[in-house]
């Protein structure tokens, strides 16, 4: 995956207008040249620095920045700040620290918060092979189950009305990726509703997925990093 980003961005680099100055920054002591306006996360990833991320999407004008897993420390003009790498544009002379003790602690807490209301049922989960939560936890050697926080999984109805996919809100990490892809395709069937801990991903007035004029492009399922939106097994009936 990181390689994919690498190729994509290199291609982009070559077409950059020669007149605009290319900002050079220092990530963990290594000098790096980036595209003007490029976001830190993608620069770091293509130059070989691993930063965990869940909600980040390339080519999004306004990054959501909700998962807080890509937090990094930046030092610009002597001021050191913690920022999400997915929304922070590169700047000349910026010093970036991707792996300090403080960052590790903040990311770990963010991950625990995500997992504390996640229905952990990997054995029966349709997305266990592609799950981003599993990937992140294993690459950082974190346990999936929160250690400091209580598990507070809410009892929410699963929508299996759609013929092709199912939505399980108890596995949703509220990354907003499905909302953004559906929006980009001009439909916007999905959005968040309610606020704070009660926030859920849903449709207008909680209409069942099957009642929408959804064209079943499945982009939302493909982009979902967890088992919240998953394809039904072939032959599976409407009721589950």
């Amino acid at each position: 995956m990181v390689n994919g980003f690498l190729n994509q961005s290199r291609e982009k680099l070559e077409v950059v207008d020669q007149e605009t100055p290319m900002p050079s920054l220092i990530i963990d002591g290594k000098e790096i040249t980036a595209d003007p306006g490029e976001k830190l996360l993608w620069v770091a990833l293509r130059t070989g620095f691993y930063i965990p991320h869940l909600c980040a999407m390339k080519g999004i004008e306004l990054p959501f920045g909700g998962c807080r897993l890509c937090l990094v420390e930046v030092d610009i003009g002597g001021r050191r700040e913690v920022v999400p790498a997915c929304s922070e544009p590169v700047r000349e002379q910026m010093k970036v620290y991707t792996n300090t003790e403080k960052i590790a602690r903040l990311r770990r807490t963010a991950f625990e918060l995500i997992m504390s209301d996640h229905h952990i049922d990997c054995k029966n989960c349709a997305k266990r092979k592609t799950c981003e939560l599993i990937k992140i936890s294993s690459s950082l050697k974190w346990s999936l189950r929160p250690k400091k926080l209580r598990s507070l999984v809410r009892d929410l109805p699963i929508d299996s009305s759609h013929p092709l996919f199912t939505f399980d809100p108890m596995k949703c990490v509220k990354c907003s990726k499905c909302i953004l892809v559906c929006q980009r395709l001009g439909h916007s069937f999905l959005d968040f509703a309610y606020r704070g801990f009660e926030m859920i991903l849903t449709t207008f007035d909680h209409q069942p997925l099957s009642s929408l004029s959804c064209e079943s492009c499945s982009e939302c399922v493909n982009v979902c990093p967890t088992g919240a939106l998953f394809h039904k097994k072939p032959g599976e009936s409407e009721d589950g």
Partner: peptide, 12 residues
Amino acid sequence: LPPSEIFSIVTF
């Protein structure tokens, strides 16, 4: 605006 967005705002 998409109805889902209105619903999002009204419930917020």
